[in-house]
Write a protein that binds this DNA or RNA. Sequence first.
RNA 1: GGGCGCUUAGCUCAGCUGGUUCAGAGCAUCUCGUUUACACCGAGGGGGUCGGGGGUUCGAAUCCCUCAGCGCCCA
Length: 873
Amino acid sequence: MSLSTKYDPSAVEEKWYQYWMDHGFFHSEPNPDKEPYTIVIPPPNVTGVLHMGHMLNNTIQDVLIRKARMEGKEACWVPGTDHASIATEAKVVAMLKEKGINKKDLTREEFLKHAWEWTEKYGGIILEQLKKLGASCDWDRTRFTMEESLSESVIDVFIDLHNKGLIYRGVRMVNWDPQGKTALSDDEVIHKEVQSKLYYVNYKIEGEDTFVTIATTRPETILGDSAICINPNDERYAHLKGKRALVPLINRSIPIIEDEYVSVEFGTGCLKVTPAHDINDYELGLKHNLESIDILNDDGTLNEAAQMFVGEDRFVVRKKIAKELDAIGQLNKIEDYTNSVGFSERTDAVIEPKLSTQWFLKMEDITKPALENVMNDEIQLIPPKFKNTYRHWMENVHDWCISRQLWWGHQIPAFYLPNGSYVVAKTKEEALAKAQEKDSSITIDQLTQDEDVLDTWFSSWLWPMSVFDGLKNPDNEDIKYYYPTNDLVTAPEILFFWVARMIIAGYEYRGEKPFKNVYLTGIVRDKQRRKMSKSLGNSPDPLDLIKQYGADGVRTGMLFSSPAGNDLLFDEKLCEQGRNFSNKIWNAFRLVQGWEVDKNLDGSHNATAIAWFKSRFNQTLAEVEDHFTKFRISDALMSIYKLIWDDYCAWYLEMIKPEFGQPIDAKTLEQTIIFNEQLMKLIHPFMPFLSEELWHELRERDEKDCLIVADWPKAEAIDEQLLSDAALAFEVVTNVRNIRNTKQISPKEALELKIKSGDFAKFENYQFIIQKLANVSSVAQVTDSVEGALTFVVKADEFFIPVSGSIDVEKEKEELQKELEYTKGFLKSVDKKLSNERFVNNAPEQVVAMEQKKKADAEAKIKVLEESLANLG
RNA sequence: GGGCGCUUAGCUCAGCUGGUUCAGAGCAUCUCGUUUACACCGAGGGGGUCGGGGGUUCGAAUCCCUCAGCGCCCA
């Protein structure tokens, strides 16, 4: 045997991936004779490198697409990347900074040139890494959200929605990063518990000589106060109703308003309201019609509106103002206090809630079909528990803030006229025409385009359509054939950001869902349940893992424990298990490959083994299909794992294996090779490389005869009787092995087996198998108990193994007695059920019949056990 | 504070609309084994009052209530 005892993935993975690519097996074209099966990849960020989350996500997609391809569908997996405005811009800014270039010193065009260079250099890395994993994407269809065609679609959609009156400009509180000078989305803000101080400040009541004390963590915002708020039910402050107070230091007169929002317990139970600098205060401000006084510049320094400390940083001012308040006797006290403060994910600056004008999309009506069609399962979320979460979000949806203060992205196609009004148009020329309708004297130089870009999600929500050019060219062959796509595999974290919005866009622009099923994977965590992250350094490098365990090993490792929607606690041991499995398959192949054929041999003794495995295979195949329809990918893998390891290797191959060095008959070998091929088909979606390698080792093949495009097996009839008879025979084998183990009899020592059974015929087909697997020299029927033998009982049959030495009669009796007692106890419980009239009357017939069978079996067994005991004396 | 979800063997998890798929799987563990495909292996074994309590039912891991612990989302 020339092949190594260990499977070496590195030798085959590269080879087959290249082969598949060279032969165009990943490529798909619309084919009316075939059913389409489409997946669009959740486009990873161009800034990204492959992490464990991608590994899981893309392994699942590859499993689905490979299975569909084998099933004869026109399988199309569209890959691509996402331009990721904020992340990419931050990377490029940092890169420029290292080169000593400040973004501020660049024009927009200059900056974008750098950004494109960066993207071209690094943007494709993650897709290259996916190839190592084995991802069978149609690389000819690779898309990028910023490429021309997709960008045009984004702009068209903006214009269209604006024309429909769904896009508007409005003021909103955003998370402002004063260092990055941009608004951040909520998920780019990291909240940390911080040790800070609670300042108790006295506000003078206007026209009186009294004070009211208010606690705040941010005394610098006092300068932007526009009201004081008390709880109308708070009797302590009832005397303040309808009065006014004076803002300390600047003596601005502000109203004292009443709102139940104020917590009576917190602080002093009295709240200062700064609508421009706190989201809750902003809401209060809207409700009570208060003035918003924005006292901060974009860089976090105070502006003219603050009247004091103009140009100084917010944190410097915080200290100074405390001193000043103290000096004039209006600082009551300072307490230590722990609160949650938001920090920018990118710059680590403290986030400033800030009012600004942004673009919004009205969500109320446009979301209706998206909600309805998930609720009625037209689109299925897997697992379905996410339906609730989805509904909750959709029913409470806020308008979508779609503008970002960045340059990298799709620039908003709005053009401002000198008078501050604006027109929305695809180009500056079109904008001019529209502007001139308003004012014929406008020239093109007087138009300025909005500086901001659109939220990245505003392009990725079109992804399932735009990758097929379905927006610009809605009747093209691709979109008609591939849309709606079949399955989307993504993380629950972006159910709203992305999935929901794709559904919205799908119905808005094609009147049709973008996909049928949404498979939500879990988050990959480490053994301590911590999310894997770069900053924690707890994530293994996927490419290292692939080197160590092989792509097949890592793929199966990821899938061994990843039920839909549940987090995956990653452990390298899982990859090790995957690698061991690869090796097991490899060695099973080595065994078969090493057999010589003797054409004169009669293999009829293997007929039972072959028939059994056939049924077992089909039984498992049915199970696997069932798991797949429910997206139980882990379970499908586990079924195949057990079929290969337990049924094929441990049972089947052991049954048919010739004596060492002996040849095998042609028929058995051929059948075994067929089985091996069938198994490679089943495992191929999970372990594409090893299975393809063995596919070609098992037989000489034509150039295009590859497993990746082989036919997926079709389930055939299962012989249930055969399977249950075999299970019985296996139980006999296990019992004999167990006796060897407990009695310390060497596996090399052949034993005799005598069976006392009312139905010996059922063992006849299995005689050969039992002999071989249990190392039994003969299987014989007896009518009487055998003296001086070890015994065991299976069902109602008694088995004897005569042994040469003396046997410990007492110990044998003890064991039989134990089993007898257990069976009697079992019978008692069954009897109890059956004697319960209400059970017999109410339970379904089937259940009652089952109980009656249990009773009969138990009684038969008891009889045999009692006889055995009697025989032992 | 509002909403959703989880708790089953040492670990990770199955267990659909109550009844042989009912107490399961994989891993880990223990015993034995350098047999001739594989020690990245083989054979065999042990291990759980299904988070606690209560209820509905002939029958509950499964349905209802309640308590405890944990997690996530929104504010």
